[in-house]
Design a protein around this nucleic acid. Sequence first.
DNA 1: GTCGAATTTTCTGTATACAAAACCCTTGTA
DNA 2: TACAAGGGTTTTGTATACAGAAAATTCGAC
Lengths: 218, 218
Amino acid sequence: MRASDKAYAALRDDIVEWRLAPGTVLAEVEQSERLGVSRTPLREALGRLTAEGLTMAGGRGVVVTDISLEDIDELFELRETLEGKAAALAARRGDAAIFERLRQELLRAPELISGDEPALHDYYELVGRLDTAIDAAISNSYLAQAMRSLRVHLVRIRRLAADDARRLTAAAAEHAAIAEAIAAGNPKLAEAATIVHLHRSLSHVKATHATHPKEHHG
Amino acid sequence: MRASDKAYAALRDDIVEWRLAPGTVLAEVEQSERLGVSRTPLREALGRLTAEGLTMAGGRGVVVTDISLEDIDELFELRETLEGKAAALAARRGDAAIFERLRQELLRAPELISGDEPALHDYYELVGRLDTAIDAAISNSYLAQAMRSLRVHLVRIRRLAADDARRLTAAAAEHAAIAEAIAAGNPKLAEAATIVHLHRSLSHVKATHATHPKEHHG
DNA sequence: GTCGAATTTTCTGTATACAAAACCCTTGTA
DNA sequence: TACAAGGGTTTTGTATACAGAAAATTCGAC
């Protein structure tokens, strides 16, 4: 593994997991010493993070970007557009057998959710497989790339919301509905199911955020 | 201007204007000597280009990405989704006076098109102002960013198509229709007008490409 | 005491030297 | 003749030294 990759992965995780708060300035010497790499690969890592929108180039050094409530609205507005379209395309072009199998797994997901920590990890892995399957089914690399760049920010937001068992169970059912619509080859229904799911997710995130707002400085 | 910015701008132009053909490997020492900068800022430029999708990291060095006919289809599929949504949002949130003024200018655009070279530049600048106005009106930085990253590739494709006066005149009318729908505050119509315009553009590009296919090596 | 300018300090931007890895060509063998 | 292994060569990846710019601090004047 290259040093720049290592620095990138470490900083990305620190930002996504909110260990590096928004507004934090990432001084090059400081971070390079902390991560055990020299300034050159660190700068490359910072460049990648800035391209993804996790950091931005301020007057001096790069700064961890903030995610405000308005940002969440904007993010989900774009997400609705992209993932709605993707679901519709997957329904047209995807392999029904793959999505039918994913639907079966998603219907059994509540067992994972009510289980302990490692089982929960299995659930996230399953949802990730659905995303991957949709990415592959749409056969549009530009759309897939646009969705990938969005997901980074979404993981960051997910950390704000309390992933209680009730919400996760409901989300699993919503995902199953999406998989079912795609397997049935129904584009309009797949898009509608996706939009419903995203709105429910957004409501949940905003409700959580209103109750337990994350403290920022800057 | 920083050396890395200079290298980035030069390489970006070379790729977009097809002076650097798809498949060309951009060796670091070679390009840094050609552009008169050292390897460090050149690498930063290459990183930015790769993040934008104009180049990709191959086994050895970065190579200029290709744009095939399928890529063009994929690109316009995403463009339809994003710009359609953007036009609809602009119709809801935009300032009618701004778009009414742009519509007036677009109706007078045929004079620019039939004129000589510098007048043509004025026309492109006008279309660019419409894009900028839409970007500002939607007040969604993530959507705006997604469209910006698309436009780089679109400029590259535009170079493939022969921008004859007939097509440009028609395009100006289509743009005027979009501006009119936004000014009227009609989201559905704005989206429809955008989709119509994009399909006409795509047809034109593909027709041109079928007649005069650009030769690639790779 | 406060505002402003000059100086100092600290940080980023760039160049270059060195290390490591990937590729290519040669050479030997089946 | 085809294929594999080895070394050599080229190219990328990393570290560090130096230059330039921006911010902070201090000193002076009003």
